[in-house]
């Protein structure tokens, strides 16, 4: 079947039964724009029961329709179930594209589903474009450690599947359409096909400092950091500014900080009010993950690319500048 037989774009709305995760709503907002260009309808796919108020929030993002799968049932995440549900839906409705939030679970089932229905899958695009000439989506993302931007397309197979990191697109609801079509879908799975189960869930004991996605202020350290011993002053500065500490990939590779603190395209996307980074080179895969109202960069190399992304830059030794910031901030507070 030719690709022109496939129409409409889908956004998967991940939720916990009570609340829709932001990433699904962000996807709807971005896809609204894309569908306006392509002429496709935008449908949001919800699996399992979700309160009406939350469904309204999805509608407010400008979707043309909702596909509600087993809406009266509590549907916990399960790899086999979600892979099969999306494979069946895709085969039945033949959407042109399916977008899935790049969460742990989204990244778990979306690629698997792509193989089941034999199609292409991309991950972590930071920009989406619609190519009128080909009818393909252009998934644009930094590649090779941020050295280049790569345009990825799925030129023949359908649906086009993409996982997108939370925080990549802005939540800016366009308002509900006058008519929103609601499709009720009932999918029964063979119990024998479910071969794994979640036994228990333990919330992070490590504490809130590992959750930097919503932090108002973020202090970030990069590969310029000499050793793990040098981290204390950056933690102190973050605390003084009322924020949290994050890092770039090399510090995770060096096992100085955990992956959960990695800021960037393949880590956490952040939107802080104030962002202050030290010893960060400015590779695109990092900067793509930062959308800050005020962006401060400190680096010893005046040519560092990070200065192209900052509002204010200081050339200097990162430790020295950090210590001086702590001293002066303390002095200001004492006044």
């Amino acid at each position: 079947m030719g690709k022109s037989a496939y129409k409409n774009m889908w956004a998967y709305i991940e939720h916990d039964g009570a609340r829709a995760m932001d990433v699904g709503l962000e996807l709807c907002c971005e896809l609204r724009r894309l569908c306006d260009r392509s002429g496709d309808k935008l449908l949001a796919v919800v699996v399992g029961s979700l309160p009406d108020g939350e469904l309204q929030r999805v509608k407010d993002c400008g979707v043309d329709g909702l596909i509600l799968v087993n809406r009266d049932e509590r549907m916990e995440y399960n790899t086999e179930a979600y892979t099969e549900i999306f494979a069946r839906l895709a085969n039945k409705y033949r959407p042109s594209a399916i977008f899935v939030g790049g969460t742990a679970n989204g990244r778990d089932f979306a690629p698997r589903c792509a193989v089941r229905i034999n199609t292409g899958c991309t991950s972590d695009a930071i920009e989406l474009e619609y190519d009128e000439a080909t009818g393909d989506i252009r998934f644009i993302e930094p590649a090779v450690g941020g050295k280049i931007m790569a345009v990825i397309t799925i030129p023949e197979l359908r649906p086009q599947i993409g996982t997108i990191r939370p925080g990549t697109f802005r939540y800016s609801p366009a308002g509900a359409r006058e008519k929103v079509k609601v499709i009720d879908e009932r999918i029964e799975l063979d119990p024998a096909s479910i071969r794994s189960r979640t036994l228990s869930f333990a919330p992070d004991s490590a504490g809130p400092e590992l959750n930097i996605a919503d932090s108002e202020v973020v202090v970030c350290v990069g590969n310029g950091l000499k050793s793990a011993d040098g981290l204390d002053i950056y933690r102190e500065l973050a605390a003084l500014l009322g924020g949290k500490l994050g890092c770039t990939r090399p510090l995770v590779d060096r096992e100085i900080l955990p992956y959960r603190l990695q800021i960037g395209q393949s880590g956490v996307m952040i939107k802080p009010r104030l962002y202050v980074c030290f010893g960060v080179s400015g590779a695109v895969n990092h900067t793509a993950g930062v959308s800050a109202d005020t962006f401060v960069a400190v680096n010893r190399d005046p040519q560092a690319q990070i200065f192209n992304y900052c509002d204010y830059g200081i050339v200097g030794d990162m430790d020295e500048v950090c210590r001086e910031m702590i001293r002066q901030l303390k002095a200001r507070k004492a006044q």
Partner: peptide, 22 residues
């Protein structure tokens, strides 16, 4: 056998530098 292709790569566009404090 691949579903995806990379029709284009380009260098990242750099924004104009910010205000340097010296």
């Amino acid at each position: 056998g691949s579903g995806t292709v990379v029709p284009e790569i380009y260098p990242p566009k750099l924004p104009e530098p910010g205000q340097m404090i010296d």
